[in-house]
Design a protein around this nucleic acid. Structure first.
Lengths: 128, 128, 128, 128
DNA sequence: GTGGTCTAGACCACA
DNA sequence: GTGGTCTAGACCACA
């Protein structure tokens, strides 16, 4: 499930967070599902337990999972909603980047084509 | 001109690089213009000369400025072109982010509206 | 391993870069090998950590090493190839120097003798 | 005669020295010839007089020119010989570079071809 | 433990 | 005046 690239500049704990978010968005991890334990993940991913723990703590802090001492961590009921909100906040940064794209000479047509590509796949998804 | 946020997670030297790039894209800094000296910027921005130096070195390495020891740093003739190319490469990352936006429930309409806003300003510009 | 000459006009950080390149070319440092840490080198060479850091950053930028913050720096898989390419580009400069040699009265025979010496060692190597 | 590139990383005074050396090696400047005055060169090359002066002083120090206060600077009788000697000393550095070339996979044939090219032009020269 | 950033301040070469 | 190098030493994020 998780794919860790130790040589990446993205910190390992950050990779775990990002991938967990994707799994939730994609519906692979759903409300109430139990996350694999720190020890399991540590062995499976060959990652230091402290690093896994850091990712877990951060996911908990963001309200995406609920950690019950002695039982484990579970995808929270508000996970999907929390993610939608936080992702939406990234729009501001994307807009700033796109403004720079425009200044760098990228045409509106080019951007629109990219948007179409992204949402075309979406339509297929809906048909399934 | 430059606005440094010392509390940002973006390193100070990186902020200087990014803002210089923007100034070039916006036409505030043009080919042949001399950059403010390391010492001047250091005082004005309350940033250590070494940190300014690091930004200057990196801008030179990217070909955006030409640094002549003892004379100063000047916006290079290829600055605009180099920036256009490097900015365009960011499109890949933006697409990846937008895919996640879609997964988080952001509608195509919403994105298109944002694109329109960005390029609407562009049209005004052309009319002037 | 590293030999630093603080009195040289070649900057210390540049000496470290050059010697690292040699170690790679000579096969002393091989793909995947971990470089000594910034702190170790700093102590061993009696050079400030910042100076070592500068060399490390530059080697990473050139693609000769892969630096993973928190883990260390490792000789990259493309190191040998990247070096071969960049070294070959020095040929132009060497030719220019040799032209001046000729103008200064150095005979072709003398140069050829030098070339023979260099590649004679190579032949021995092949026989082993 | 002199061609100064103010944007070059090679210091202006160093450019003047190198070009003067070439002029001597090429026989354009000969024993006894008077160098243009600091003021003349300063104006012609659009270079600060101090910078010209520095080059002159260095050429004098190397014995390539003789400066007679109130009269001017003249190519010394030992200029050609001094240059031959100093150039020859660069052979050590060139050999070191060529050894690295070999390590980088440059073939002996390739080097020999370059040598042939350099000295082929030489033969033509002798015939003139 | 690892690398990355930053300040404070010195000194150099060059114009 | 300009940029470039270096030391000393602090503090941070990450594993």
């Amino acid at each position: 499930m998780y794919q860790i690239d130790v040589m990446s500049r993205v910190p390992v704990y950050e990779q775990i967070i990002q991938q967990t978010e994707r799994f939730i968005l994609l519906g692979i991890l759903r409300e109430g599902d139990q996350m694999e334990s720190v020890r399991h993940l540590s062995v499976k991913l060959s990652v230091n337990p402290n690093t896994i723990q850091k990712a877990i703590s951060e996911l908990d802090r963001r309200g995406l999972i609920c950690t019950v001492p002695g039982k484990g961590s579970f995808i929270s009921e508000m996970a999907m909603k929390a993610l939608s909100i936080s992702k939406r906040q990234e729009l501001v940064g994307i807009k700033r980047q796109l403004v720079e794209m425009k200044m760098a000479g990228v045409s509106k047509l080019e951007i629109e084509k990219m948007i179409d590509e992204i949402y075309a796949e979406g339509k297929k998804g809906e048909q399934l």
